[in-house]
Design a protein around this nucleic acid. Sequence first.
DNA 1: GTGGTCTAGACCACC
DNA 2: GTGGTCTAGACCACA
Lengths: 128, 128, 128, 128
Amino acid sequence: MQWQLRGDRPIYQQLMEQLTEQIVSGQLLPGDKVPPVRELAAEAGVNPNTMQRALADLEREGLLYTNRTSGRYVTEDKSMIDAVREQIAADRIADFMNSMRQLGFTKEGIVKLLEKSSMGEGNEDANK
Amino acid sequence: MQWQLRGDRPIYQQLMEQLTEQIVSGQLLPGDKVPPVRELAAEAGVNPNTMQRALADLEREGLLYTNRTSGRYVTEDKSMIDAVREQIAADRIADFMNSMRQLGFTKEGIVKLLEKSSMGEGNEDANK
Amino acid sequence: MQWQLRGDRPIYQQLMEQLTEQIVSGQLLPGDKVPPVRELAAEAGVNPNTMQRALADLEREGLLYTNRTSGRYVTEDKSMIDAVREQIAADRIADFMNSMRQLGFTKEGIVKLLEKSSMGEGNEDANK
Amino acid sequence: MQWQLRGDRPIYQQLMEQLTEQIVSGQLLPGDKVPPVRELAAEAGVNPNTMQRALADLEREGLLYTNRTSGRYVTEDKSMIDAVREQIAADRIADFMNSMRQLGFTKEGIVKLLEKSSMGEGNEDANK
DNA sequence: GTGGTCTAGACCACC
DNA sequence: GTGGTCTAGACCACA
């Protein structure tokens, strides 16, 4: 996994976001084992405590669970993962719409532009 | 005008972007006088040289022009402003679509969500 | 404030419990300023980070809130404090009842003994 | 029998308490033979000397007696067992009441809560 | 080898 | 001076 960290926001937050993206986008599937804290920390180039905090916070959110001695796993509650994905999508849509409106576009105008735009194929299952 | 500057990218670039946004969103109209460099620089809390560079670059792009004796003005070439707005919009749409696709959404799914979303009223004139 | 810490459970948990007791018992009133993290940490003889964690967790629970530069305060939501007190009371009652039942007492027998027992005066307001 | 031992208090004390609980709760009846020291020690995972001390102390209290040739037995003096149970109950009640009063409850409030609480059925015979 | 906790010490933003 | 974050390094329980 590749990590993109910037100094302008708490690192643990960025780690949480990127791990969440891995989960909601299906790169980490329900029930999958998450690599050990120390391994992820080394990968991301952060202190193990920082990664630990990110994982613990995701656990409080319900996206992960810990099996004390065997490691951390992605939740098997697909509806929770779906809910998180829908929330993230809603946030991004709101940001996007505001940004476009700032440029003087209306909702209808945006939809028209979007329909003309090209895009690679997504996962149909995600659009329930 | 309120300026949002961050230390992770060239300041003059951010100034250019925000001035461009002012122009394409109609907060600065074609032919409007742009405030003096020193005034803008003070407002933004940057060195006048930095603001000067941003304005000069926008001038090279054609969005501004200088009347040596009376100051800087927004271009009166509306088609150029429109072209810039369309370019910015296209970039934002591409970013947005990629980001949504990463979450597992298809173009059709995104359009559906967008149509359901609420948004304040935009300027119809902007959607030529 | 006097702190009682034992090595058999996480310290931050014990700190949370004792701070919670301070709040639900009215020794810290709604809106009261909580002493600075570093001061509490020194008082309790723990690392500031450990006290910080306890306070941050209480904040997530809603018992405290932070005013970024001026310090931490007890929530002014009295109903939340009441809810916590009722929960703690319910837990203690359950433990007590189980322990007494283990000794062979029935609920009626326990109530009878309790009525005979002596106790200092409590705060009537707490028994709404 | 399952033993719960912690490192923060003398082991023999904890053994005494748990054996006493067995007796006053009727899991060991008056006149019952107590298993051999070595067996109990093995069960509890403690040194036989430690278990021996616990049993000797209970014997001094009168809850056990030794028949030099056939082993240790629970006392047949039911009134002594009852007295011990009442003492333990009184202690637990006092602790409980203090703890609840600390939360701001009055004796009357506690009794009310207790009456509302649910509890499995106890042994009526124990409430003389 | 796993996650969990704790300490010590540092730096930052904010006002 | 306040809370917030991060690093480095250590120790623990558990299986």
